[in-house]
């Protein structure tokens, strides 16, 4: 069934995104895992919208909003990472303590 396949896929993407987001030491890889989590949310929205709301398609509109927010996040994230890299010469997460001193 299409609904349960979509839900299982999105659960898989969500859990592996959480795992990668917590355990990755590279900031850019953490951003990639964040994209995975947002995509899991989008798959849920689109699957439910196709299955329950196939006339009005409001889930599609919410997934477009999520895509726009992800675009804003993907513009901000590498900018911050490159600014940290310029100051620290490193993109490891556990070495970014610029607020400390």
């Amino acid at each position: 069934m299409m609904l349960e396949d979509g839900l299982v896929l999105s659960a898989y993407l969500f859990s592996i995104g959480i795992y990668g987001l917590i355990t990755s030491r590279n900031m850019v890889r953490a951003l990639m895992c964040l994209e995975l989590i947002l995509n899991a949310v989008n798959i849920n929205f689109v699957t439910f919208s196709d299955f329950f709301d196939s006339r009005q398609l409001k889930g599609n509109i919410f997934s477009i909003f999520v895509i726009a927010i992800a675009a804003a996040e993907a513009a901000i994230g590498p900018a911050i990472v490159s600014s940290i890299y310029r100051n620290r010469k490193s993109t490891r997460i556990n070495q970014s303590n610029l607020l400390n001193n």
Binding site: N39, N42, V46, S54, S63, I67, A71
Partner: peptide
């Protein structure tokens, strides 16, 4: 596959 062509195009373009 799940009938959402506009979101598919937006995903392909933006992501």
């Amino acid at each position: 596959l799940s009938n959402s062509h506009f979101v598919a195009a937006a995903q392909l373009l933006i992501y």
